[in-house]
């Protein structure tokens, strides 16, 4: 995980990037919508993995920062008529700031207590969004979101999203592969020993949480503009669980794992919903399968298959 990107890896990334960028050429509004949404949830899942895969804690309330980013941006754009840049920045900052405060309390605890507390904080956010009707429009959802004319077009918004997401993922890559990222892994692997070698574990975990909150906020800002609306469900704990499963499905011990998990799960949900209302069962069975048979997710599965058939290349 800490090794730099191999040549084949680099090439693969580039190809995927180009393929994504060419989506609008297929002339399908549906496809543009799908890729846009996948990009957004992928960033959301990647951000969560900074907490789980790197610092080793499980947040059950990550949707809160996603929702805060989305709502603050939506409200500033629409109700107060702010231009895009300051409004989006304010949205992301609000998410980051909230994450910083919540993390201050949560990082005092570990494990189960950490998970439960993140959940409770996110539900507080949910309750506030729900009840602050004059600002958020409560249960009805905040619609419409005023999207600036420049990106108020399917293709334009797609490219805008793509640029923001690619830059965000690149930054996340750099962070996780820096000295900071390596010490985070050390924290996860062995809290005691990391403490010995002079890493302030609580502060590291706090920083990881804040970074995750920042990028969840970015994803939320894009989400609100894409849907031209924000809904309270975005902050509900089941949303946090869903993104957690995406992360886990892809594989928490790999950088790109959550991205793959997000894409797969998103498409699966779309397609399942067309045929049956029992998407939760499908999701539950997938989850059981991962937990009982494949704890390192799809990426781990891919690696195992590759090793079995003697495929060389980087591990």
């Amino acid at each position: 995980m800490t090794s730099p990107l191999s040549k084949t890896g680099m090439a693969a990334c580039l190809i995927i990037l180009i393929l994504c960028a060419l989506t609008p050429l297929l002339q399908s509004d549906y496809l543009i919508d799908v890729v846009t949404e996948i990009l957004i949830v992928a960033l959301f899942a990647l951000s969560l993995n900074i907490i789980i895969g790197y610092s080793g804690n499980v947040s059950f309330g990550h949707a809160a920062y996603f929702a805060i980013g989305g709502y603050v941006n939506a409200i500033l754009l629409t109700t107060y008529g702010w231009p895009l840049l300051p409004s989006a920045v304010a949205g992301v900052l609000a998410a980051t700031l909230t994450a910083a405060i919540v993390a201050y309390f949560c990082t005092r605890l570990t494990d189960i207590y950490f998970a439960m507390l993140t959940l409770a904080f996110s539900m507080l956010v949910w309750a506030i969004v729900f009840k602050w009707r004059s600002l958020t429009n409560g249960d009805d959802g905040f619609t419409p979101v005023h999207v600036p004319a420049m990106i108020d077009d399917r293709t334009a918004f797609f490219y805008f999203t793509m640029i923001v997401i690619v830059v965000s993922i690149a930054v996340l890559w750099v962070i996780t592969h820096s000295a900071f990222g390596r010490s985070l892994v050390a924290v996860r692997e062995n809290v005691g020993r990391a403490g010995f070698v002079g890493i302030h574990t609580r502060r590291m975990r706090w920083q990881a949480f804040v970074i995750a909150g920042f990028f969840a906020g970015v994803a939320g800002v894009l989400f609100g503009m894409y849907h031209r609306g924000m809904y309270v469900e975005s902050a509900f704990w089941t949303q946090s669980a869903q993104v957690l499963i995406m992360t886990l499905l892809g594989g928490i011990y790999s950088f790109f794992g959550p991205l793959i998990g997000a894409a797969v799960l998103f498409m699966l949900e779309r397609l399942t919903n067309e045929y049956t209302e029992y998407w939760p069962t499908v999701l539950g069975v997938i989850l059981l399968a991962i937990l009982l048979f494949q704890p390192d997710g799809l990426v781990g599965l891919g690696k195992r298959i590759k090793n079995k058939f003697g495929g060389g290349g980087s591990p």
Partner: peptide, 10 residues
């Protein structure tokens, strides 16, 4: 935690 959540869904 996640196992119990899978039970919730199913």
């Amino acid at each position: 935690l996640l196992l119990t959540f899978a039970i919730v869904l199913i």
